[in-house]
Structure formats: C-alpha cells, structure tokens
C-alpha cells in the first residue's frame, strides 16, 4: 500500500487518489503554459527567450532593463495574482459547498462579494479614493457581511439551508444598497467603482499583489488540516459529530478560513464572480470523486482565473474586467457539464 499523500488523501483504500493527482498534474502543466503566455503577451514586444532570461537569469542571455521591467515587474505580479487568487477563490468555494452540502453555495452567492463591494464603495466615498481606504473598506465589508450572515443564520445550531437563504437575502439587500450608492456618486468615480465591482486584475500591481499573495499562500497551506473535517462533514452533521468531529469549532474555523481567503482576494481584485462557485464543481467532475476534491479545486481555480484573465486582456477587442470573462467561461463550462451529466444519468 502506498503512503498517503496529504492533499490527495481522498480515497481511503489506496491512500492517494491517483486520479486527483493526475488531474492536478495536468492542470499544473496547463497553469505553467498559460503563465508563460501571460508573461510574454502584451503591447511591448518581447520574445519567449527574453521571458526566460528575465525570469530565470543565467543560463539564459541577459535582457534589457526594459524587458525585465515588463516581464518581472508588470506581467509577473498579474500572472501570480491570477494563479493564487484563482486557487484561493476555488478553495473558499469548496469549503462553503462541502459545509452546506449544496453545490450552489459559494461566497459570492452568499453575500460576501456584494458586502466587499459595499465596503469598497464606502471606503471610496468616505475616505476619498486612496487605495488603502478602498482595500480596507473591501476587507471590512466582506468580513462584516460574513459575520452578519453567520449570526442571522445561527439559531439552535447552523442549518445548511437557512444559512444559504439568509446569505442570498443579505446579498440582495447589499446589491440594492450598492446600486443606490453608485447612483449617488459622480460618473467618473462610479465607472471606476463599477469596473472594480465586476472583479478585475487591472490593479494587480507588484505592490498590491505580493502582500496579498503571501497571505493567501499561508492560508492555502492550512488547507490540509481541514480536509479530514470536510470529509466527515459530508456525512451530515449528526454523523460527523458521532464519528468524533467537534462540529461547531471545526465548522467555524473552516468558514473563517474560507472568508479570509475570499476577502484577501477581493481586497485587491474586487469580487471576481463564478470561480468559487464553478471551480469546485468542475474539479469534482474531472476527478470523479464522491466529495469535492480540495487540491484539484485549487488547481482548477488557478487555471480558470489565469485563462480568463488572458482572454480578458488579449482576446476580447477591448480590455474588460476578468470577472466578466469568468462568468462567461465558467458558466458555459458548467452548463455543458451539467447537460452532459443529465444525458449520461438517464
């Protein structure tokens, strides 16, 4: 018998889920390929050789300072942001969907996206548009919304369905509030805010990305500790507890981790829709696992967001916020998968 691998320990009898491992490997190769495209493509012409040289130094030939600036200081933060943010959003969605045992639960559906946007708008209006104010507003807005949904849904324990419905209700309220604020502020500010509100990596500069990505990598490294609890939670609350899970404590910790992941992303990139919702479901179908595979979800999210950002930057005629593309790509793929499943299920 093989020794179990931390992230992949899904299938009990073989320790490692080989299929999840294979899916992750393929996705990582895809991420590297897309990442290279992301470093290379752009208005300033660089050759693939120059990308390698700028990134890795010797043995590749040395590059002009301007090439280094373009590849490492401009393109690299955005590529890293897409990969890490995508993984974080997917992990957050995987946690929400496993805990609620509902494939439609995700932080964006349950109000966190709109809450961050509300916070961002308030930061923008009240603190005069400084980045620090916007980021702090988004962070606080997301966290306050998460806390509000949790407290409103909590009565005699947390019930899955009430949790989701309360989230959707709070989300709708905040969406209305956001529209009202957007209508009250001047057009220029409203346009900027709307782009952010759609979710964009246009603001993924080195100064913003490195701190956020560092925090996210640390948070993502906590995930292996949550896998076992998530697997027990799939059995229902009663069985999770009777098999030995300290349910309330672990569930609260996992939700906190999920909220932290999505908040850190939103702070820099705004509420990018659909990755958290679609990536775990796509990963589950790729791996064909009984529950949602956490590692494969992260890899799927990373590839999904990076691919969407490349499309947003280079494929569509005018640059659009990546959030617009994730909705289109993720939505189309999920629809296709569901249709295929409906056919094969019969």
């Amino acid at each position: 018998m093989s020794r179990p691998l931390l992230l992949g320990s899904q299938r009990a009898h073989v320790g490692v889920d080989r299929r999840e491992l294979a899916v992750c490997a393929v996705l990582l190769v895809a991420a590297l390929g897309l990442g290279f495209v992301g470093l290379w493509a752009g208005d300033f012409p660089v050759t693939p050789g120059e990308v390698a040289g700028a990134l890795l130094g010797a043995p590749f030939p040395a590059v002009e300072p301007i090439v280094y600036t373009v590849v490492v200081e401009w393109h690299l933060p955005r590529v890293v942001a897409a990969l890490v943010f995508g993984a974080a959003l997917a992990a957050s969605g995987a946690i929400f969907q496993t805990i609620t045992r509902n494939p439609l639960a995700s932080p964006d559906v349950m109000g966190l996206a709109n809450g961050s946007f509300t916070g961002m708008l308030l930061g923008l209006v009240l603190l005069g548009g400084a980045w620090a104010g916007i980021m702090a507003g988004a962070l606080v807005g997301g966290l306050v919304t998460a806390g509000l949904v949790y407290v409103l849904a909590l009565r005699d324990g947390l019930r899955d369905f009430r949790f989701i419905v309360v989230g959707i209700g709070v989300s709708a309220f905040l969406a209305a509030l956001n529209s009202w604020i957007l209508l009250r502020i001047d057009v220029e500010t409203a346009l900027f805010a709307s782009a952010w509100g759609a979710g964009t990596l246009n603001n993924a500069t080195a100064g913003a990305v490195w701190p956020a990505a560092s925090v996210l990598v640390v948070l993502l490294l906590l995930l292996p500790w949550g896998v076992a609890s998530l697997r027990q939670l799939e059995l229902g609350d009663d069985l999770a507890r009777s098999t030995g899970l300290a349910l309330d404590r672990h569930r609260a910790a996992l939700l906190l981790l999920a909220v932290a992941l999505v908040s850190a992303v939103t702070t820099v990139a705004g509420p990018i829709a659909f990755v958290a919702l679609a990536a775990p479901q796509i990963a589950r179908r790729l791996v064909r696992s009984p529950g949602i595979p956490l590692a494969a979800s992260c890899c799927t999210g990373a590839v999904l967001l990076l691919g969407a950002d490349l499309v947003a930057q280079h494929v569509v005629p005018l640059t659009v916020p990546v959030g617009v593309v994730t909705v289109v790509i993720g939505g189309a793929y999920l629809t296709w998968l569901l249709r295929r499943e409906m056919r094969t299920d019969r």
Binding site: A12, E234, D238, L239, S242, R288, P290
Partner: peptide
C-alpha cells in the same frame, strides 16, 4: 451512534 438521517457523497464506494 448511527443516527436516523445521514448523507453520503454521491458516488462514494462502500470501503471509502
């Protein structure tokens, strides 16, 4: 305790 209501993830094998 084996409770009255429990759920199993779709497609899980008996051994898992």
């Amino acid at each position: 305790l084996l409770p009255q209501t429990m759920s199993a993830p779709e497609g899980i094998t008996v051994r898992e």
